[in-house]
Design a protein around this nucleic acid. Structure first.
Length: 156
DNA sequence: GCCAACGTTGGC
DNA sequence: GCCAACGTTGGC
């Protein structure tokens, strides 16, 4: 099993939104970055787990945990001319963009803030802690995953 | 294929 | 709202 961190702006889609979805499951659509596309298409597998990160908000940080329930498949919003994610260069024969389905697992009683991550000896090496990082999905190591989970429990 | 200009992300 | 950092675009 591999671990990931998925960013989302809570004003757009928050962990509470995910928890309220039917079956607490939602497609992670709208990714329009090639590095992240490659991860969605090739690397992220069913059964992998991911942290849910809230960005561009008063307190950016990790707010919970989810599971990948469906592996990469074409992001059909790219074919929808009405969608804000429409891309005329993505065709049915050669889909350019991919998405996965995620399922809510838990919301942490208290979020792990970016500030906390940045000053933590282990976590400060995470991509999320580097400014200018543009990737909306990043891999998380086993060590980082365990450390973050322990932090989440400790804050209960 | 280079690279300057531009657009976007995202923390502060 | 500012701006640093990065990705993308497009002229050459």
């Amino acid at each position: 099993m591999q671990f990931w961190l998925f960013k989302s702006e809570p004003a757009c889609f928050s962990i509470d939104d995910l928890a309220r979805r039917s079956k607490q499951t939602e497609q992670w659509d709208g990714v329009r970055n090639y590095q992240v596309r490659n991860m969605l298409r090739d690397d992220i597998k069913q059964g992998d787990q991911a942290f849910f990160y809230h960005s561009s908000c008063p307190e950016p940080g990790i707010v919970g945990r989810m599971e990948i329930v469906k592996e990469g498949y074409p992001d059909y919003t790219a074919w929808d001319i009405q969608s804000e994610h429409f891309d005329p260069n993505s065709s049915l024969e050669h889909p350019r963009w991919f998405m996965v389905d995620v399922k809510f697992l838990e919301k942490f009683p208290s979020p792990i803030s970016l500030t906390e991550i940045k000053r933590h000896p282990v976590l400060s090496k995470m991509l999320i802690a580097k400014n200018g990082n543009r990737l909306s999905i990043t891999p998380v190591t086993q060590t980082e995953w365990n450390t973050l989970l322990k932090l989440a429990v400790a804050k209960k």
